Computed example of a mutant assay.
Amino acid sequence: MTFLFASGNLALDLVGTLNERRTTRVEHLHDGADVARWLVEAGVLDTAPTAGPDALTEALALREALFAVVEALLDQPGAPLPGAALDVVNAAADQPLPVATLRPDRSVARSGGWRAGLAAVARDGLALAEPGDAVLKWCADPACTHPFLDRSRGHRRRWCEMAGCGDRAKAAAYRARRRATA
């Protein structure tokens, strides 16, 4: 199983580890090893840390808190953000970050434990309140619950990723046009 990294933000990518949240709920984090693998695939850490049940519990709590914050940002503009979710995100962001080390070949090594990795994700989540030139959006696929940052010119991006939700939507539109002309 591979993870989806199409949102433009680590926190949003973590939120995306639970697909189809409002329907079939497809979970991608089943244990601490999945959390460690996600942190490596996301580029937060270079090597998978040792991660047990606590890592899964804290990652899922952070994911759900980030989802609550994103939901409030998108669906309740101007309203206060949910306090309990902010407590979880802020506590995770308060942890030490992964250690970055410059190598002789000019690459950067990132090391640390799973809590450091989650701290980096939480800090990316803090940036969502002020996304700058990007627009925070929900995927236009009704079954998908992936939020993403739209950095496209004109902010016309509609899907979390073209290879999945976008392709399905375009194929469905094509089939509907074909049926209408037949």
Rank of each mutant, 00 (worst) to 15 (best):
C144L: 07
H30T: 08
L136V: 04
R178S: 12
D124V: 15
E130Y: 15
D105G: 11
E41F: 09
P80F: 01
P53W: 14
P82L: 04
L81A: 00
A134E: 12
G83Q: 04
L126V: 09
V44P: 00
D105L: 08
D13E: 06
G113V: 01
E41V: 06
A91H: 06
C139M: 02
L102Q: 06
E41K: 11
T101C: 07
P82Q: 06
V70A: 03
A172K: 10
A143K: 05
L62E: 11
D133T: 11
A11T: 08
W138V: 04
V69Y: 03
L12C: 05
H28K: 11
A163D: 14
E64R: 15
R106T: 04
R21Y: 14
H155Y: 12
S152P: 02
R177D: 05
A11E: 07
F5S: 13
E71L: 06
A85N: 00
G113I: 00
C165V: 03
P77Y: 07
N90Q: 10
R22T: 06
R123L: 12
Q95P: 00
L102V: 09
R151D: 14
Y174V: 14
G125H: 04
R153C: 13
V35C: 07
N19D: 10
W138M: 00
R25G: 11
R63T: 09
P147M: 07
H28I: 00
G113F: 01
R151G: 15
R157A: 09
P98A: 05
L39M: 10
R156C: 05
A72P: 00
V99M: 04
A116E: 09
R151I: 12
T50V: 12
G125D: 00
A79V: 00
A36Q: 08
A68T: 05
A55V: 02
R25Q: 15
A79T: 01
A119W: 03
G8W: 04
A11R: 13
K137P: 02
H146M: 15
E130T: 15
N9M: 09
T17Y: 15
A129Q: 11
W38V: 01
W38K: 10
T23H: 01
R37I: 00
C144D: 01
V99K: 05
P142N: 07
E58G: 11
A93Y: 08
T47V: 06
D141L: 07
A61Q: 15
V15E: 08
G166S: 04
A33I: 11
G32K: 15
V89M: 06
P96L: 01
C144H: 00
P80S: 01
R179F: 06
A36Y: 08
P98Q: 08
